[in-house]
Design a protein around this nucleic acid. Sequence first.
DNA 1: AAATAATGACTGACTGGTCAGTCATAGTGG
DNA 2: CCACTATGACTGACCAGTCAGTCATTATTT
Lengths: 233, 233
Amino acid sequence: MMLRPPRSRKSKTPRENRRKRAVQSARAAAIPASASRKVRSAERRDAILSAALDEFSTRGFEAARLDDVARRASVAKGTIYLYFRDKESLFQELIRSMLTPLVGTIEALGEADVPLPVLADRIVELFVREVYETRRKDVIRLMISEGRRFPKLAEFYYREVLSRIIAAVRSLLRRAAARGEIPERLVDFPQIVAAPGLVAIVWNGLFERFEPLDVRKMMKTHVELLFAPRREK
Amino acid sequence: MMLRPPRSRKSKTPRENRRKRAVQSARAAAIPASASRKVRSAERRDAILSAALDEFSTRGFEAARLDDVARRASVAKGTIYLYFRDKESLFQELIRSMLTPLVGTIEALGEADVPLPVLADRIVELFVREVYETRRKDVIRLMISEGRRFPKLAEFYYREVLSRIIAAVRSLLRRAAARGEIPERLVDFPQIVAAPGLVAIVWNGLFERFEPLDVRKMMKTHVELLFAPRREK
DNA sequence: AAATAATGACTGACTGGTCAGTCATAGTGG
DNA sequence: CCACTATGACTGACCAGTCAGTCATTATTT
């Protein structure tokens, strides 16, 4: 899974008279010198992941420079390679770490047995508060934008996150359908329930500056229409 | 609007003793030697655009190599620069040329005054036949993936395409609402109508291989539920 | 408790491969 | 016959990944 052929290091000529190493650099400023190694190490990792999210989401995977990620994390470039195998691993780990926690939250939602209107509200609030108003929004946008070029990552995301979310939503829809609250055929397409969320994320990235979108209101409108009581059938 | 600082060519050293130019290359095979210059020229342009779409949509903007685009179009790399200023222009022109024609089609749809169920069918069919089953799907996916890094392009797309499509859909919704066929508040969010289309495109790119999606059926389900007769309100 | 040694986290200059864009040269249609 | 079209080798910028060297911290000895 490589975007370019490997840049193997087959240099045979010995490297001589290198290094002079100027005076001593300012050490990483961000992290207090106290704290045990373990803690500092975890903080570094997080700082790198956070910086990577910023860089990847403004420039995209290819265009993002690890030099910039390092600078933003107040770390030397080499340090990144102590925590992640390569640029791609960093990217995958970023997505993994941000999205995995979502699953539990949503599965919990799927199990509760509450009336449909309440459920609808919860779905909307969960999305707005846990995704749209956090950096997870950016991670999902990254997944959408770059996922196609990382089949392994898409597979991971499908297997570990999406399929479970879909299963949860589906079981929830199935129970609502059994109670006659929604038509049976909606159970086949849980994607429909989530669709405006996706639109919101994409819109936010591309067109917010031309035409702001009231996400909560849109989501509310959508679920209300989907789940509204119907005349027949 | 640049991803990297310009690669200006400020080389001062004169380039000497270059060029030897080997024998003569096989000429571009794809385009018949007949045909007037104008026709050949237009065909080349199209071949380049088509090749660019393939390359951009499999590798992404940054990773796509113009060498590959050239090879795929049976053209030398330099030729691309006779038709497009640079890689970015090529990309923008690609999106521009593929999506602009959509507008007229959809505006026509927005003006017809037909009963809602018929309209719903037409919307679904239009999307499936004119977008999902054509390369426009790939162009829209490109727009979604890369648009964020091309603010100018996003603006163009919003101004020339999206805002007009939205206006058309909105006017169509407004009339339906006036006839009492749908609730008023749906008029505020034409995005909701299009949302499953977007989901379909993204899904197709990322997850189709794990779980195929019957797009036509999903779209149909969605518009039927949105436009279904309601009990109250 | 102070001195000394061992550890390994961290650094950043450097390398090699890559590719957008150029331009000297070669063909060709009108 | 020459203006226009096309070519593709070449250049310079660029950047992921490397690794020899530097200390801060921890462990050990005295």
